[in-house]
């Protein structure tokens, strides 16, 4: 049986978060099992299931070129900009 990944929205207002995986033959069964397995203690208000094989993931080797370039851009953070101490509301 195919592997599915389960995403749970813990409360209204929060995004779905990965909770774990399970095996099921079809999406309906996967959704039901996600409910049985990952929300036994009121852990969620909404569920997504997605076939694990449908997920395209970045690889460890991709990490330097994907994520390191974001390092050199301090100007994207508000703290990069010094303001005169009298300025308010920025």
């Amino acid at each position: 049986m195919p592997l599915f990944e389960v995403f749970v929205r813990p409360r209204r207002g929060l995004q779905h978060q990965h909770a774990g995986s399970l095996r099921a033959e079809d999406a309906e069964l996967a959704l039901q099992y996600a409910r049985e397995i990952y929300t036994r203690r009121r852990e969620g208000v909404s569920l997504w299931v997605v076939r694990s094989s449908d997920i395209t993931a970045s690889q460890e080797d991709d990490a330097p070129m994907f994520f390191d370039p974001a390092d050199g851009k301090p100007y994207r953070d508000a703290t990069f900009y010094e303001l005169p101490s009298k300025v308010r509301g920025l």
Binding site: M1, E25, D26, A27, L29, S46, W48, V49
Partner: peptide, 26 residues
């Protein structure tokens, strides 16, 4: 039971039926 659910899933796919779960979006 395992064989049955596999066979049923194959049939469903072959009929081109989409699984009954709603296509959720965020």
């Amino acid at each position: 039971v395992r064989e049955a659910v596999e066979a049923h899933a194959d049939k469903t796919r072959a009929r081109g039926l989409r699984a009954r779960v709603g296509t959720g979006s965020r």
